[in-house]
Nucleic acid binder design. Structure first.
Lengths: 228, 228, 228, 228
DNA sequence: GATGAATGAGTATTCATTCAT
DNA sequence: GATGAATGAATACTCATTCAT
């Protein structure tokens, strides 16, 4: 009659159960998207019954929000933690805190590391995209690739004209294209929030920021983080 | 009692009806997201019955793909058209075609104009995000804003150190933050596609491209499109 | 106001509910045919909601298959049980088992008893015919009757020539006609499975089996089951 | 502008069009069953538009009835024609008409020939069975086979006891089993129409008719049609 | 703390049938 | 004689959510 330690433990404390649920839910939401994810599947994978989910997290929405909050906190903590640490390390430069770009670089680094390690968390935070059927997702990906290809080609052309061209690869052009397209996409939101701004203004600003930067880099100007 | 010409006509030719359906569908998909959009609503708003949708576009998926294709074609055409036109205009510089950055700038401009004019199309193409309930969408927006705020603060700090600081506003920092975050997000895909790349490498590249560019701009280096 | 014990209970164990569903489904499928039967109707008659049907039996097809299996098992069990019992009873004839014809007779008897008692089960097992509207069903029945009438007439003519005619009625001719037509119909499948067989061969075999048998019977040869 | 003779003729006379439709409809109804057959498919295969079907045959039901009637007439005509012809040929035996069994045999022969040649017609007339999905059809076939196998085994056992066993094959037992099962199935209707009859009575009658006949045949009594 | 049993409300999809030309 | 355009009505199936134990 006695439950062995290996048996799925009954009567697990609330906090622990909640974390189990959220762990599973992050995976499922990332894999299927919010709508397509079913509470049934999450409950089953978590090894508990549906009513528990509702008892602890209230609703599907509550469950998703819990995922969102936990992962967002983790990401922010990683970013902030890294930036602060860099500040502390840089504090001996006399300014009392690290240079902004050092902190920014540390934050970006933490971000990319987070995403590399916890893809699911990032997907839940930023893209509930896979809602879409495979057919549709493929069409979307194709459309995106077409845009990317055009941009990449222009970038490549720009690079070729530079003296440093030889050292630069296809992959570099691709990198710049991704950054550019991502920036443009995101600036879309900035435009929506700043109604007075004309497309002309936005395009010009973006060109200045990215193209000039790229040009400097090609001319040999390089930014490197100070030794930690 | 007479039907005005504007009254919803009966017995419209197939091609025309299809465009009507797609027009409406783009709006609804943009507003609700793929899953939450119901064929019922689309049919009703289009002033026709559901079977017509299925007769002409085959399925909900078919309908969405039709939207996707039409809008993607329009966007690509706008981008490409602008870039080519710029190339033609620039042909007298002796190179036989416009400089790459001129063409890129024209393309970006066309892109931002497209998005400004046809928000729905862009949402359908790129973000079926609003799948999410208002509550969730708000939480997502909040999370994003938190990230944005941190980045923007670092950017502002960087700007402040520059001599040109006085001329630069809150809005400029926000612009850079959006561009940076968007680029970082997008580079997430680039990382996934280039498995060897370390987060360190990506962060460094991004810093170089954006920060150096920003620095140059702050120092007065400005890129301007040639007079058309 | 008090619930009688007979009142439809809530929260019935799964196995029991499944049997209730199948009971109702057999009736409805028999009455309406597979396509015309609606899961809605079955659920309502069973006093439960549709999702329960899908939860327990998976799909309309699954529901039908469950009916099919249960009734087929019952029929086979009845046939087999009767045949075996006859074998046991006849074991004292020295052969160690009953004569084949005794067992066959017992099986046939069980079959006819089963069909007489559980018409619905038989209809589900063998004829999902009532798919057809009343009008069509009537036309089909009429066509069948026409065939039957012709055959019956020939049988009657055959009987009349025999000495024993006086004792034989209209009903007997009808019996033979039904047996003959049913046999012919079924042999249609046998033909399909034995491609080499010519219609001539089949017709001849059937005549030999039935007509000769009928002739012997008319001449007074009678088979009777041994006293049980 | 002139229509070539090969082009699908427009303006075909009504009777001809009707026959075209019925030809196609018989095929489709046989292949899909009544419900699963769609007027769309029939119209398309017939090379005309749906409204024509409704103009000429009134409704799906009307279309099916037209098929039913035409094929039933053909079958009855074949059966009757053969029987009459046999009667005429046998008229010189002095009775003024052929012996009943000769006519019956001729009719059966015509029937099996009809079914062999026009499977679709027979399916429409007698079995709208394929309404069922493949999965279900397979389960039904399996159930039927199980019954058939049991019966066939008893038949085989009966045959083995006979002196003539050596000459008889597996296929013969199968033939008898098909005839028996078909007869039993059909007698099910006879029972329903003759309420007083007990299962016992029916089983006994059937045994007498078939088993005795089989026994005679095994003992060498053979019926052969007179030379035509 | 935990769950098997149960459902209301909705959604995509299909099809026979008719109208306007 | 012939058809493209259009629809009302129905149906299988799903899912978040809640009771009763």
């Amino acid at each position: 009659m006695g439950d062995t330690p290996q048996a799925r433990r009954r009567r697990v404390p609330r906090k622990e159960r909640e974390q189990q649920m959220i762990d599973v839910a992050v995976q499922v939401f990332a894999k299927r998207g919010y709508h397509a994810a079913s509470v049934d599947e999450i409950a089953e994978l978590a090894g508990i019954s549906k009513p528990m989910v509702y008892l602890y997290l209230d609703s599907k929405e509550g469950l998703f929000l819990a995922c969102l909050r936990r992962e967002a906190d983790r990401l922010v903590a990683a970013f902030q933690g890294a930036a602060r640490e860099a500040a502390v390390r840089g504090a001996d430069d006399g300014s009392g805190r690290g240079a902004p770009e050092v902190r920014l670089h540390a934050g970006l680094l933490a971000f990319f590391a987070f995403v590399a390690e916890r893809r699911d968390s990032w997907v839940v935070l930023h893209r509930q995209a896979s809602e879409l059927s495979e057919t549709i997702a493929a069409a979307v990906a194709e459309a995106r690739r077409a845009v990317m290809a055009q941009v990449a080609e222009l970038v490549r052309a720009g690079i070729e004209e530079s003296a440093a061209a030889a050292q630069l690869t296809e992959r570099d052009a691709d990198f710049v294209a991704h950054a550019l397209v991502g920036a443009a996409d995101s600036l879309t939101d900035w435009m929506a929030r700043n109604p007075g701004q004309s497309p002309e203004g936005v395009a010009l600003r973006l060109m200045n920021m990215v193209w000039v930067g790229m040009g400097r880099v090609l001319e040999g100007e390089v930014w490197v983080p100070a030794r930690g």
